[in-house]
Amino acid sequence: MTNKSPKLFLRQNCIIDCTKHWKPGTFLEIGAGTGLMTQMFLSRGFSGYCYDLSPESRAILKNRLNEFTAQVKILTNLTIATNKNFNYLFAFEVLEHIEDDLNALQYWSQFIQSNGKIIVSVPAHNNKFSKVDELVGHVRRYERDDLFNLLSKAGYQNIKIINYGYPLTEFSRYISTRLLKNDNSAQLIPIAERNLRSSYSRPTVISNYLSKIPENIFAPFKYIQRLFYKFYFGDGLVAVAEKI
């Protein structure tokens, strides 16, 4: 990928805000993608395992995390983590790709200890589901109550949910939708393949557009979005909870 998208930039900063008081501990990350979030936690003294289905993503992870080999293990199979007792579970932009999200979440949760913390991010607002979602293999978006109920059913408590991204993601989503309005490539690629590619591949038109925008232009919006965390305007949700 080229530059971060506005949504990725703001999601990363929201996650920093949500976890700034967390003590370093052990983690299991599901769907680690290109390792941007993994790297962020490792640089703060965390250690653990990260897993991704895609061989391409695992190769990117290996390269990005090369300096942290003493702190992190990249998994090819989750069974390797059996009998571990992690402090934290991370799943960023993963649940929306899975038909049975509750079953998946319950399975992952067996790897973390009681009172361990989870942090997840998902796209927000069912009525925003569009071609952009189809292109990256989403099967749903989430309402805040949907995500709360999902975490509660999976055995979590003290659930806190933030709606991030507003107002920048409203504008960037409008631009993306316009740029991709005639892109029918999703129809030619099985959804499983779209899921595998979603973390490291963008439509060419989006990559070209982002390559022309300096990332630091988004910086003021990481502060502005904080004013709207309690509202329900932004394009994504970040949830933090504690395992019962």
Rank of each mutant, 00 (worst) to 15 (best):
K117A: 09
R178N: 10
N83H: 14
I118A: 00
P190M: 08
L75K: 13
K230F: 07
V94R: 00
S109T: 15
K4Q: 14
A241V: 09
E96N: 02
R226A: 12
F129K: 11
E56D: 12
Y49D: 11
S57Y: 03
L89K: 08
G165A: 02
I224A: 12
S172R: 05
V132S: 08
P220H: 04
K23G: 01
G33Y: 02
N208F: 08
F9P: 02
I161V: 15
Y200T: 10
S57Q: 06
L61G: 05
A91G: 14
L8I: 05
K212A: 12
I159G: 02
Y156D: 00
Q39P: 01
I161G: 01
T69I: 12
L179P: 12
F41N: 04
I189T: 15
I119T: 11
G165E: 00
S207F: 01
L179K: 10
E170M: 08
L180M: 06
I119H: 07
P123H: 06
N85A: 12
Q187T: 05
L237Y: 01
A59D: 11
L180W: 09
E29R: 06
M37R: 00
R140C: 04
F148D: 09
T38L: 07
V122F: 05
R58D: 01
R141H: 11
N13W: 06
L147W: 06
L188A: 14
C18L: 09
R64S: 07
A239C: 09
W108K: 01
D52N: 10
D235G: 15
S152V: 03
H138W: 08
N216M: 06
F9K: 07
F9W: 06
P190K: 09
F221E: 01
L168S: 04
L89W: 06
H97A: 08
E99G: 03
R194K: 15
I98N: 08
N216G: 04
F68N: 05
S201M: 10
E56Q: 13
M40V: 06
K4V: 06
N85P: 04
Y107Q: 12
Y88C: 05
T169K: 00
I217P: 07
F231D: 12
I161C: 04
Q71Y: 07
H97M: 13
W108I: 03
D101Q: 13
N63L: 05
L53I: 14
T76H: 08
D101L: 04
L78P: 03
N87A: 13
R64T: 11
F231I: 12
V136E: 04
N208G: 15
Y107F: 13
D17H: 14
N127G: 03
T2F: 10
N66E: 13
F221T: 00
D101T: 03
I16C: 07
S121H: 04
C14V: 08
F218V: 02
R11V: 10
L28R: 07
A192K: 13
V72C: 10
F129Q: 04
I15N: 00
F46L: 10
R194T: 02
L180C: 11
E99C: 04
I206K: 11
Q39W: 03
Y209C: 14
E193A: 07
Y200L: 05
V205K: 12
L65M: 10
G31Y: 02
Y232Q: 15
N115M: 05
I80C: 03
T34W: 01
L102Y: 15
G33A: 12
L151M: 11
G33N: 13
Y164A: 00
N85Y: 08
C18V: 10
Y166R: 00
F129R: 07
T2K: 10
T69W: 03
G116E: 03
E170P: 01
T169H: 03
